[in-house]
Design a protein around this nucleic acid. Structure first.
Lengths: 144, 144
DNA sequence: CAGAAAAAGGATAATTTTGTCCTATTTAAA
DNA sequence: TTTAAATAGGACAAAATTATCCTTTTTCTG
């Protein structure tokens, strides 16, 4: 469904958010540990998330990553997915056709569009804050 | 969503089915052409589809691939997906966690399970025959 | 100021997925 | 019976994704 990179990106963002709710800053090392992700790969992803303003970084000793509550509210999961994986999962044809639309549909077009629409709606409606709350309260988890 | 191999597999199967509805046998070359897929790669996929009985092949000159109407009716899209991509798309965690369930859910678990369930239901309810009919009638397409 | 901890970023490696090539085997038709 | 067209299948190549390593820069703390 999503690429590994995208899974790591969402897990990392949610971890940073849940810690920011408790006014804690987290390092890449901590993020990787808490989300069971490869450290260096996660570091690259954090740079992307920082560059596009989903969260922000503080360099130097005692540095790390943080999010404001505004960022958590403003960031929908669909944005993270689009940033890392592009919009193929939201707009692409289920059978991989370049051009597939109501005028020239693939055999699966109608049924697939419907499901894809629900996926997009769900990710559009879900903010980072929505998910970070349950994580902070220990109701949900980011690793086994 | 699905791998390239899986997209090719579904496209190829539907093409074979639509031709079989007209009592025509199709070669790998024709399938690749009609579905805009790489020939040799498609050939490998056809072997898989043949081995597991989704369709059948006839070797030698004038050979190719065919499906019986029974095969078309019996084969649900979910079977092809599972054959090529495994069941990760149907059962896997949206955030890639190994163990993610109601007891120890990831932050996205509930919302994601719902969408994934709709996808599975759609692919379970859709047979190859369902889709091959529109294709035979020129209502849907497998390439631009 | 010196040292250490942390992000930034470039280069490279490993793995997986996708794609190609070539030979062997099968079978219909001339 | 020979030839050609087709699938079967093994080996290999290319590309994309995932992952690691190393150096530089930043900044806090002693």
């Amino acid at each position: 469904m999503f690429s590994k990179a995208c899974e790591y990106a969402i897990r990392a963002t949610l971890l940073v958010a849940s810690h920011s709710l408790m006014d804690e800053r987290v390092s890449v090392k901590d993020i990787a540990e808490a989300t069971a992700s490869p450290v260096a790969f996660t570091a690259k992803i954090m740079q992307q998330l920082n560059r596009c303003g989903i969260l922000y970084s503080v360099q130097g000793k005692q540095g790390g990553f943080e999010m404001t509550k505004e960022q958590m509210q403003a960031t929908k999961l669909s944005q993270i997915v689009t940033l890392i994986d592009g919009d193929r999962v939201f707009t692409g044809c289920g059978l991989g056709l370049r051009e597939c639309n109501a005028l020239k549909p693939c055999p699966l077009h109608e049924r697939f569009s419907s499901v894809r629409g629900e996926l997009k709606a769900m990710l559009d409606e879900t903010t980072v804050l929505d998910l970070a709350l349950g994580l902070k309260d220990g109701l949900t988890f980011l690793r086994t």
